[in-house]
Design a binder for these strands. Structure first.
Length: 641
DNA sequence: TCCTTGCCAC
């Protein structure tokens, strides 16, 4: 299944390096054990200044002396001391020591000083494979993946053999770049090199490969590598699990987790985080609670990422209060933990609460991250808090020195667009300092859909079709807008365009957990054994609802059909089927929890409001963006979503 | 001397 592809030739690095074999020989090898013991003792105690004083009083420091000092500078994260050590090292004639050069590269990498990493690499003539590997690691960590790949090509060309470490770094380099061009072909090419050099049984390289394919969204390739691995450990299982959880395959993730447990492999905190994500994606509350129990029994409840994942899991499963309880019991909270809570409130449309937690975080001395702003601005958007959102957006660069990224602009466009300030949203896009990507135009198009603005929608979709020619969702949105405006010829045109590109509309799907099992319902569902019973109930309910004021919202049906036919289509929406399935399979008074893969349509929304009143049930629906909590005929979103 | 998995937003 691996095709050997030769990607377009990468440019040779601008500066061409030739390895010059000058063996380094320290000038005066003088054993100085007591001295190094003292240095080591100071370094271990974190007394770097004292160690440096000793350095300047010792006439003959050794390689070991510098190794100790370099490690200590990394540990103390002190760039000024690092520069002092570097200068003295050069003065003492150690500049060409490849061992110390490797250590220096690691140190400057730890200190985020990538220019000095390059400088050390440039100046070292005897480039051992250790030096190359450290250099690649540093560049990869700094996000300069393309540069690593250029050097790797160069390294191959001049005949320097890679070792097993090189492969892990160059693989990671493929996913460590902000380049718009996918480096997947390069990753596949390196995969071929790895096979050719007989590393197909190497545990670490194969695990890295799984992770890299996962990040490219190539679930099939990742699982192919995984099943072919002769030995696996907890890390490789966890990597595969994360791959499923992150790529929209939560059921596969849970299945793999079960398999892992039956192989007597004990999950660690990292494993649990991915499994929790899978539960969150499925809104599988009961499963999630079982995992929480396991986490408590195994003492994993002191690990921050696990707790943050728990907060998010509970919130996404419709149990915001349980998430809040976990959050309240956290002894220490990092920015991720705070962000989890900020976005959880946002998910429920509790904008004011989200802002409150955001401010509380700052009061606690935790600086907001770019994601904090995505979360809080998203919350403002769902709650219609336009003024607050604008103020927060302003404070980003002014108070927190965080410069808005495409995601932040997309939030602002969404905030204004939803609030029917479409022109202002368009102005934001016009004035952006960075290239507005598909997320930004997509937000605008989504808002045009809500407020049925055909002109602006045409503008946005023209740009979107260029940027994302294969995203069916954009075509569907535009067709929706035309349908609502009753421009049936235009609807037909868009549909033809969709067909001509071989694209298909993502079909609606809802799922619901009944007695710890997850059931999915699709608009056209033949698999579910109860389907006839479900359809009958939906029909019965709709007739009764009609007597209670339900008017089917046939505007959203994308076909120019008779009203009756449109109504029939509306009744087949997966969310209504899920509501009926929930009513049939749960006991009286029990809350019905449903998730769906698309935005909730207006008709299902008003239908469910009435059902909640008529059947006296609380119904919680999570759509692609947020929660709707239906109670006694009203929805928590206040019909603003 | 250097290697593998994870939390928060879309």
């Amino acid at each position: 299944m691996w095709t050997l592809q030769t990607p377009p030739c990468l440019p040779v690095p601008s500066c061409s390096y030739r390895p010059i074999s000058i063996a380094f020989r320290p000038s005066k090898p003088k054993p100085s054990n007591n001295y190094n013991d003292s240095i080591q003792s100071f370094c271990q105690k974190g007394q770097l200044k004292e160690a440096l004083q000793l350095l300047f009083h010792e006439p003959n420091p050794t390689q070991r002396t510098y190794e100790l000092l370099i490690l200590s500078c990394s540990h103390k994260r002190s760039l000024s001391d690092a520069l002092t050590v570097h200068r003295k090292l050069i003065d003492d004639g150690f500049e060409q020591d490849p061992f110390l050069a490797t250590k220096l590269i690691n140190m400057f990498s730890d200190l985020d000083s990538i220019d000095r990493v390059r400088q050390v690499f440039d100046k070292t003539f005897n480039r051992t494979i250790f030096l190359w590997n450290a250099f690649f690691r540093a560049l990869t960590l700094a996000g300069h993946g393309i540069e690593v790949l250029d050097f790797y090509t160069h390294m191959n060309r001049i005949g320097i053999p890679s070792d097993r470490f090189t492969y892990t770094y160059v693989l990671k380099a493929c996913v460590a770049s902000e380049s718009l061009v996918s480096l997947l072909p390069k990753g596949k090419e390196i995969h071929c090199h790895i096979l050719r050099h007989g590393y197909e049984r190497h545990l670490h390289i194969m695990t890295t490969l799984i992770d890299v394919y996962a990040r490219f969204g190539c679930v099939g390739s990742a699982s192919c590598v995984f099943s072919q691995m002769p030995q696996k450990n907890l890390v490789s299982w966890s990597a595969m699990l994360a791959c499923y959880a992150k790529n929209g395959k939560p059921l596969d993730a849970l299945e793999l987790f079960r398999e892992m447990m039956s192989n007597a492999l004990l999950p660690n905190s990292v494993t649990m985080v991915s499994v929790l994500q899978a539960c969150a994606a499925l809104a599988a509350l009961e499963q999630g609670k079982i995992l929480h129990g396991y986490i408590l029994r195994k003492g994993l409840d002191s690990i921050l990422p696990v707790l943050s994942a728990l907060v998010t899991m509970y919130a996404k499963c419709g149990a915001l209060e349980l998430g809040r309880r976990v959050f309240d019991q956290m002894g220490k909270r990092d920015v991720v933990a705070w962000n989890s809570m900020i976005s959880s409130y946002g998910l429920y449309g509790f904008g004011a609460k989200s802002i409150e937690i955001f401010r509380e975080m700052i009061r606690h001395g935790v600086s907001p991250s770019p994601i904090s702003f995505v979360s809080v601005l998203g919350a403002c958007s769902h709650a219609g808090l336009v003024a607050e959102g604008k103020q927060l957006f302003d404070s980003m660069s002014k108070e927190h020195k965080i410069y808005p990224s495409v995601e932040h602009y997309a939030c602002m466009v969404d905030l204004l667009g939803r609030a029917n300030q479409l022109e202002e949203a368009a102005i934001i896009i016009q004035d952006m300092r960075i290239e507005p990507g598909p997320k930004v135009w997509g937000s605008l198009l989504g808002s045009c859909r809500i407020h049925c603005n055909v002109d602006l929608a045409e503008r946005a979709s023209r740009r979107l079709f260029e940027l994302e020619p294969t995203n069916a969702g954009n075509y569907v949105l535009l067709a929706d807008i035309y349908a609502e405006a009753r421009m049936w010829d235009k609807v037909k045109q868009v549909k033809k365009l969709l067909e001509a590109k071989g694209l298909r509309k993502v079909s609606g799907c809802s799922w619901i957990e009944v007695k710890r099992k997850i059931y999915s319902l699709q608009s056209v569902d033949e698999i579910n054994m109860q389907i006839e019973q479900i359809h009958a109930l939906v029909l019965k309910l709709s007739m009764e609802m009609k007597q209670n004021g339900y008017v089917p919202d046939t505007r959203i049906v994308l076909y120019d059909l008779e009203e009756e036919e449109k109504e029939r289509i509306l009744l087949g929406h997966s969310e209504k089927l899920a509501v009926a399935f929930g009513l049939i399979n749960s006991s009286k008074g029990e809350t019905i929890r449903i998730s769906k893969n698309l935005r909730l349509c207006e008709d299902c929304h008003s239908f469910t409001k009435l059902i909640s009143k008529y059947t006296n049930r609380e119904i919680l629906v999570r759509d692609i963006n947020r929660f709707h909590h239906f109670r006694n005929g009203v929805c928590s979103c206040g019909d603003y979503w």
